[in-house]
Design a protein around this nucleic acid. Structure first.
Lengths: 253, 253
DNA sequence: CGGCACGTGCGACATTGTCGCACGCAGGCC
DNA sequence: GGCCTGCGTGCGACAATGTCGCACGTGCCG
């Protein structure tokens, strides 16, 4: 707790306060925080007031007690950056492409769109565009729907949802139902919702706490990815889910 | 960005820095942070140095760039406190007890132990102890193993693992395998690992981002919870998982 | 109804964070 | 290969800023 020269005292203290609040599942009173850290009441109060102002702690209006705020949760989500995710996923993405025979994309959610951070071509043929860096609509792709399903910050983008094909889900309610289904079974499907004739199957990549930080998926012709009843082929689903799980394991270090 | 009187300036600035780093998936240089916030280079550097010291940001040793640190992720986990979780779970816990015919416990991980925050008696008979507030070992109970499986902070407690029955898993490696299996299927079983003759089935409660903040489970005689091959009865598993999912939905607000 | 303890706010002091400047190093361009 | 630009880092002085003591008001318990 002592002061390390060259470090900003008030930030060190804020960190101690946050750790204290995080360690205790109950809300804490100003006095308790002050005593635990050996600070004067006013100082602790001043720090808590500021932390509340920036959204890192919340105060119960009735009991006046403080607890960790929701703002911190959103910040942690970005703990893994896209590059790190990409690095860990490289081998597994290649394996998935080889096993499934389809092209593979790895994406993260950014500003309500899917940012493709990695792209592996379909093994057999050649004429394909490199999609790395491209942004895809979230509500019309398998990758995007998986990311939306587990997104901490409010679901879909604020504006209206564009229709890309006649199968694109643009209404709020059906989309919410679909996202719930994805959460329930752990993977997502998009069949001709983005481009006619194309389908995708995707699954979430999680970090240690179970937080979803990205998604990996395959894309290809509808007839190869789905059966005659437009259901995803179980063998492919299993491959995608297995790849996502492997990457999740890699990320946890 | 401007200074609000009564607020601690350096903490406001730290918050801005963290938000900036969180918003950008790439690592940022000192100069970029300084320019974005309109601060002198030295000031930004001083703040970043302190944030790194407390573990809120990390610096790549090679490129000298900064990104959000892993310490923040752990803090967000405690965003939901035990009381709030309990409040949201009350009705679903009762329903689960009624449908399954077994007693129900709701727990959170605290200091490497399971803290029971809610307890519903078995519907039929009466002579039972109220377990609310009790702490259970994490590695020997279904609730605990589920919580460990999704725990952000390093798995089991540091010390040796106690054996309560001859079925208690005390070795690191088998336990890690078991936790991986729980992550894969989404629920956990403990059969006579804590008390002879007793078994438990539990599933995780997740918050918006998919972060596990607690677990709910049923407990009862082995012969009622498992079949002749010591496998959990699918009907009961389904009920527990459904309850956990319902509570997870409640928590996301 | 009285007393205590807590959250909150204000103001003065001096401690502390801020800012300007300079060093050393790495990368890129010529 | 050498020069030069631009960056990260560290130091020091100033004064702006955070800290602390004190006092008010309120809610709770006895």
């Amino acid at each position: 707790m002592s002061h390390v020269p060259g470090m900003i005292q008030s930030i060190e203290r804020s960190s101690a306060v946050l750790r204290l609040l995080a360690a205790d599942p109950d809300r804490l009173r100003v006095k308790e925080v002050a005593d635990a850290l050996g600070l004067p009441k006013s100082t602790a109060h001043s720090i808590l007031r500021t932390l509340e102002h920036v959204g890192f702690v919340e105060q119960d209006p009735r009991t006046a007690r403080y607890r960790i705020g929701r703002g911190l949760l959103d910040l942690g989500t970005a703990g893994i950056d896209a590059n790190e995710l990409r690095g860990r996923a490289l081998n597994w993405a290649d394996t998935l492409a080889a096993r499934s025979g389809e092209e593979v994309r790895l994406g993260v959610l950014r500003d309500g769109l899917v940012l493709v951070v990695h792209h592996v071509f379909r093994p057999d043929d050649s004429a394909q565009d490199l999609d790395t860096g491209v942004r895809l609509p979230a509500h019309a792709t398998a990758l995007g729907k998986v990311l939306l399903a587990y997104s901490a910050t409010a679901a879909a983008p604020a504006g209206g949802l564009d229709a890309y094909t006649r199968r694109t889900v643009t209404a709020r309610e059906p989309l919410a139902v679909e996202l719930a289904a994805i959460r329930a079974r752990g993977w997502g499907l998009s069949a001709e919702e983005w481009r006619p004739g194309l389908a995708g199957i995707a699954a979430p990549v999680r970090t240690s706490g179970g937080l979803v930080v990205g998604a990996i998926g395959i894309a290809g012709p509808v007839e190869r990815l789905t059966d005659t009843r437009r259901q995803a082929r179980p063998a492919l689903v299993e491959q995608v889910v297995a790849a996502a799980r492997s990457i999740s394991r890699e990320v946890q270090s």
